[in-house]
């Protein structure tokens, strides 16, 4: 659909298309969630700069840059950072 539309002046008619760029490749440490410990508070979800923690509190490794904010802020230490 996007291809048929004319795009001029560097307009981008493909909302959310940075999803094509998998920033997960930047990562050296990855967050791993322990669902047993998780209390579902949503703090990791709210703080994620890349909006790539699902509402089930699973990181989306396609985009997670491994910043570690979720692990740092988890009030029950349910997330640990593990080397890739």
């Amino acid at each position: 659909m996007v291809k048929n539309m004319k795009s001029i002046g560097a307009a981008v008619r493909d909302p959310g298309s940075t999803r094509r760029n998998k920033t997960g490749s930047w990562r050296t440490f990855k967050p791993v969630a322990d669902k047993e410990k998780c209390i579902g508070c949503g703090i990791c979800y709210l703080y994620c700069p890349d909006g790539c923690i699902t509402l089930e509190y699973d990181p989306d490794y396609d985009y997670c840059k491994g910043c570690g904010i979720c692990a740092e802020e988890c009030p029950v230490k349910a997330i640990t950072m593990e080397r890739e």
Partner: peptide, 17 residues
């Protein structure tokens, strides 16, 4: 999500939060 992932912010960017 109104700001899609895949953007080029540094890891841990506060602006995107």
């Amino acid at each position: 999500e109104y700001l899609a992932p895949g953007h080029r912010a540094c890891a841990g960017c506060g602006a995107t939060i």
